[in-house]
Design a protein around this nucleic acid. Structure first.
Lengths: 140, 140
DNA sequence: CATATGTAGTCAATCAAGTTGACTACATAT
DNA sequence: ATATGTAGTCAACTTGATTGACTACATATG
């Protein structure tokens, strides 16, 4: 194949899978969601709510940018701002029902994608790839 | 690790390597280059020159966007526009000396990165990853 | 061969998603 | 009590792309 260096292969395979994911989400009616929204929703779910600054740190963008994305996701009924329980300056962002549903759908699609790959190359080999990618990240 | 699904691992490992590449290029004095410039330069080199529309098709962006990037790379002495040999409407974009040098530097750094990985996980296993990533791309 | 339609590239205006800077309200340290 | 720090928002700007309009040239058709 023409794309034969590792970096190109990583780029293309990531793009292929993320496109597949969002194509499927779109089919399920979630046409208004981008990858960054997924990362944000995942973080919120994992921590049972998050502040703007936590999200900014996690995503590596400014709190102002987070604020705009939160506006968007709130308008589209994926998340909701609530007053922070202890800090009156702050707010926490939590998932709505729709937010929980899209997150679950995303998990399911990612599992399907991995399952499809397991059918092709086997579970052991998929696990090896994952381990190796983790070591690429650790050792670079 | 927290990033344990395949898509996240692909994203993070790609980002890690591309950051490493551009950090090294920057050390060599090529601070004025972004990933998209690398893709464009590679395509031009591979085809011994390219038209704007070929580049737009290859990169998946509009010809107007290509035109702006070509402006930038021409100002920074990586490439040069020449009249198209047969089509008087067209131009072809070719590499300058600096363009050839940066491309070679990029290839060398990518090879070093792969070599570093081979030292860690072995050549066979790297080849397996590459094969598997290629099949992710083909079969999705 | 004349003419209609198509194509390569550029210019201009606009859009999208981020940034920096300034500000308010509240929190924390001295 | 007061000074300094922090969470979030608003506004202005930047960057890298887009769409639309245009010019010059190419190609197909009557």
């Amino acid at each position: 194949m023409s794309d034969s260096d590792l970096v190109s292969l990583l780029s293309t395979s990531f793009q292929t899978l993320i496109d597949k994911l969002h194509e499927r989400l779109s089919e399920l009616g979630f046409h208004d969601i981008r990858p960054v929204h997924g990362y944000m929703i995942k973080y919120i779910a994992l921590h049972d709510g998050a502040t703007g600054i936590e999200l900014a740190d996690h995503l590596g963008i400014t709190k102002q940018a987070v604020s705009k994305i939160v506006d968007y996701l709130e308008e589209n009924d994926y998340i909701q701002r609530k007053p922070h329980p202890t800090d009156k300056r702050g707010k926490i962002v939590v998932l709505t029902e729709r937010g929980r549903i899209v997150m679950e759908a995303k998990e399911n699609i990612l599992n399907e994608i991995e399952q499809h790959l397991i059918d092709n190359i086997g579970a052991k080999r998929l696990q090896m790839i994952k381990d190796d990618l983790a070591s690429v990240i650790r050792k670079t």
